[in-house]
């Protein structure tokens, strides 16, 4: 009886601790419904600084990452929580004017169904609205890759590469679950190889892309997938791996000569 009670208490404690293990990683690909941590003018100023940096570099397409959580709260090898394409665009305002600026092409989780994602367009200030740290990771691809990325983004392939079955730690080498970094990587693969054939894209990712191991206790991972719908291991045949801004950055720096990587923090 005593052993039974103690076992139950330990199991409950274990499950409770494990259920919150991914809390820090949660809401990684969420829209601007996140809570704001900075004054609006700080976010506005930073977002415009990022835009102006991209514009000064003549970037028609860039890959931009944000920190939804402090780096100290994330597993090893992960610094940013969400990635999107920034595309130089003609923007139509509510009062009918057309002005140049950047639009953000995101894969966001649905607020009420975090295991489902949508492709959502917003703008830099919306993108950075709920960040925990005002810091942006930027990859500016080579001119040739930028042109090919634009071709993909402007084609049905961009949406066709989207799988709405979301997992925070989606495996970029397999199908069935996807997160923002995997979709970004797939779009990059479609651009590089000028194809919409997902099998060919995945084959090349397996051959040339080095994913980030998810360094979390397997037991915690299994329990996390039980308690959080946004975490799934259904697409992880072995030790779990996922794509990150850092691994995409390494991939492009290796294979896309002329690409540039930088970090932007608020100007003093």
């Amino acid at each position: 009886m005593k052993n039974s009670l103690l076992s139950t208490i330990l199991l409950a404690a274990f499950l409770t601790a494990s259920s919150s293990v991914y809390a820090g990683m949660g809401s990684g690909s969420s829209g601007a419904s996140e809570e704001i941590h900075f004054k609006p003018e700080q976010v506005i100023q930073f977002a415009k600084q990022v835009e102006k940096t991209l514009a000064a570099k003549g970037a028609h397409v860039a890959i931009v990452a944000r920190m939804g959580r402090p780096a100290s709260e994330l597993p090893e090898g992960m610094h940013y929580t969400h990635v999107a394409f920034a595309v130089y665009s003609q923007i139509t305002t509510a009062d009918g004017r057309q002005i140049p600026g950047y639009a953000m092409y995101n894969l966001y989780q649905e607020d009420k169904h975090p295991d489902v994602s949508d492709l959502v367009q917003d703008f830099p200030v919306d993108f950075f609205a709920g960040v925990s740290v005002l810091e942006a990771g930027i990859i500016i691809p080579s001119p040739k890759l930028q042109q090919r990325l634009l071709d993909v983004i402007n084609s049905p392939t961009y949406a066709a590469l989207h799988d709405p079955h979301y997992s925070l730690i989606a495996n970029p080498y397999t199908l069935g679950r996807q997160n923002c970094t995997e979709h970004t990587l797939d779009v990059i693969g479609a651009a590089i190889y000028q194809t919409g054939d997902i099998k060919r894209i995945k084959a090349n990712e397996i051959a040339y892309f080095k994913a980030q191991p998810v360094n979390v206790n397997p037991f915690k991972l299994a329990l996390g997938s039980m308690f959080s719908s946004e975490i799934s291991t259904s697409d992880q045949p072995g030790a779990p791996v996922t794509a990150t801004f850092e691994t995409i950055s390494s991939f492009l720096q290796k294979y896309d000569k002329g690409s540039e990587v930088m970090t932007i923090t608020p100007e003093p």
Binding site: S20, E34, S72
Partner: peptide, 26 residues
């Protein structure tokens, strides 16, 4: 390092009144 995530609650995305987007727009 990886376990520090345990102590933080998930921030709900449904608090429209305190949402980042609302604050920016306002």
């Amino acid at each position: 390092h990886s376990g520090q995530a345990v102590t933080n609650a998930v921030q709900s995305g449904s608090h429209a009144s305190a949402s980042a987007g609302h604050s920016i727009a306002a």
